[in-house]
Amino acid sequence: MSDWIRPRHLPEALEILATAPGPYRVISGGTDLMVECHLAPERRPESWLDISGLRELQGLQITEEGIRIGAATSLEAIRRHAEVVAHWPMLAASAAVTGAPPIQNRATLGGNVCNASPAADNAPTLLAYGARLEIVHHHGSRWLPYGDFHLGYRKTALQPGELLSALWIPYPPKHSRGYFRKVGTRAAQAIAKVSIAALIEVNSDGIIQSAHFGMASVAATPCALPSVSQYLLGRALCDIADMQVRQKVKQDIAPIQDIRSTTAYRLEIASRLVLEAIHKRSESKKEN
């Protein structure tokens, strides 16, 4: 018999996790976990901690610095949120291409991050916006830059007993523009073959002040592009050598061949999308 606990308050949940961190599998929308349970019933956990009833993990709050999004907030709520649409359009866009509306109604932003798929649809956006994670434990809490969260394939920085409670995203710099694109196997209900989010800040002299990228499905984890960012920093837009950028992309990603796409396609399209992001910086182009 499996054990299902649905606490109403965060401290209660944290106490359960702290006393029995191993056996309890945290679940909220379940859009990834339920599929996993069906495909591999022998690995089905015995004990579930359902965090969907925790009010502390729900909702979006605007602050002076940015927005705080409760980890168990649904993607549907995020993509329709007026402030998100106005200030973080890439997040609205990535939430809107996660699965399809029925998935978005249940799936949560925290779940998308903690499931730690290399193809996570909202990971590139969070990386490009420089999101921070609020991680809580029975004994306290800590902050972690999202860029430090994914340690390896399906391996995260969450310690036993810890729970992701919120994601905090700063306002983008004033003169920055974003570029988001998901290339999936089809227009909806698709897993990404390559996806990208970029936030590039250019001053009035055409000099790049900052450049942040996030990509999915091009490495064992969602990843930033540190070499590309470094190459672009302080450089004039008119001074960018595309071949150099391609070289840097190659250094930063490690795409594989799998059931959905080829190494060659992922590498080439990743380079094309990075160049497109630099040169076009059109706002959050949705696929199709």
Binding site: Q189, I191, I259, N288
Partner: peptide, 14 residues
């Protein structure tokens, strides 16, 4: 590719 996530048929959006 014996799953509907990997055997890709078009959706109405396609």
């Amino acid at each position: 590719n014996d799953r509907l996530t990997n055997y890709i048929i078009p959706t109405s959006a396609d």
